[in-house]
Design a binder for these strands. Structure first.
Lengths: 211, 211
DNA sequence: TAGATTGTTAATCGATTAACAATC
DNA sequence: TAGATTGTTAATCGATTAACAATC
């Protein structure tokens, strides 16, 4: 399940930042870039950036730097940025709607192919081009459309039972925005975007601010 | 600036999860809890949970466990969950609106006291009880209301220039939802909630899924 | 050639885990 | 007393950083 490419998790989290710096370089017509410039974008020293990239292969030229286009293309391939990624959205509240229309996702080829909700008044609505379907159709839709990813934006109380259904329906990856720890069978990956928990950690720093 | 309490960052990130488990215990009438139960919620072994809590002091009783109410009260104090936390919201797009009405924030006493936007058609609107003010009034408002925290939910292109203004106006903590790395003066803390970068890391796993 | 920058090794740093005496 | 569970030490693990030979 871990795939063929092994990467330390902190390294993986920095790759999108390197990639973003490469896009900027392209935009500015820069064709060679240094580990120092890449590291700066990710907030790490040049040595860290070089080490991260060395996990992917040898791309740089000593004394010169990295070819912007070549490295960008490689990161796109490693991260799968250009692969179409079908996902369903569960929960069409304020946050769900915002995610459905988030402009930053299109660049990475995320395709939200349908949304689901229990609220009858929302069924049949559209968010952009995304149709809102009744939750009962979840399993059928996942099977018929071969969807592997779900974005979960329902209230905390409903999240676990829906996660169970998603796992049973064959979803492999849940991007969870509900503020709960989900239990899922092995083989299902959960990535938590827990804004309430994050706020609690911000609170720690905020109340310690001087002045 | 680092405050008096030193905590490893991974530990700090787990404290909200322990706290959440304590709330659940209270709800169920459980008055003693073990490091094993706490660790499970955060996805770590019992030894890790004990070590995390030992940074805060000695709360458990050997052979017994932790007092649910006592530990919850202590976590509330350490994290400052019950302290009122004023914040302003910059950017009243879909994501900004969703954050302004996010139900999970009230429990931790986050008070979004105003929202700002450049779009004239949005000025004067209300999101719940939050008024949308023109961006020109940002500095005045921050000074007059002694605000330390800003939630930044503007398009990537505008984020840096607004971060500059926030820092100059005396904001200490920026919760940044724009997909960019902000440069801020020392003394200003930035916490990034970079959904586009996160999607890129999800992509890495998604395209490697078997079947 | 002189200057710049990579890829990699080794040293450092910090977090996690295992083990267990102390305690209830 | 026997069983359970903490707080803490020491061992392990993994990531970061410094340094530098190799390369352009």
């Amino acid at each position: 399940m871990a795939g063929s490419v092994l990467l330390p998790k902190p390294c993986l989290m920095r790759l999108p930042h390197y990639y973003r710096r490469l896009l900027q370089a392209m935009h500015e017509g820069q064709s060679i870039i240094s580990s120092d410039e890449l590291g700066e974008e990710a907030g790490v020293p040049a040595a860290q950036a070089r080490k991260d990239l060395s996990y992917l292969g040898e791309f740089g030229r000593p004394g010169v730097g990295y070819d912007v286009y070549e490295l960008a293309a490689h990161l796109e391939r490693i991260l799968g940025l250009n692969e179409p990624k079908k996902a369903i959205l569960i929960g069409v509240g304020n946050l769900g709607r915002a995610l459905a229309s988030y402009p930053g996702f299109a660049r990475y080829h995320l395709q939200i192919v349908a949304a689901f909700d229990i609220d009858p008044s929302k069924i049949g609505q559209r968010i952009g081009s995304i149709r809102v379907l009744p939750l009962e159709e979840l399993e059928t839709f996942v099977h018929q459309n071969d969807v592997r990813m779900a974005i979960l934006a329902v209230p905390a109380a409903q999240a676990q039972s829906i996660a169970d259904r998603l796992a049973a329906a064959g979803i492999h990856l849940i991007w969870n925005f509900a503020p709960v720890s989900l239990r899922v069978p092995t083989g299902v990956m959960v990535f938590n975007e827990d804004l309430a928990a994050r706020l609690a950690t911000l609170s720690f720093f905020l109340i310690r601010q001087s002045s």
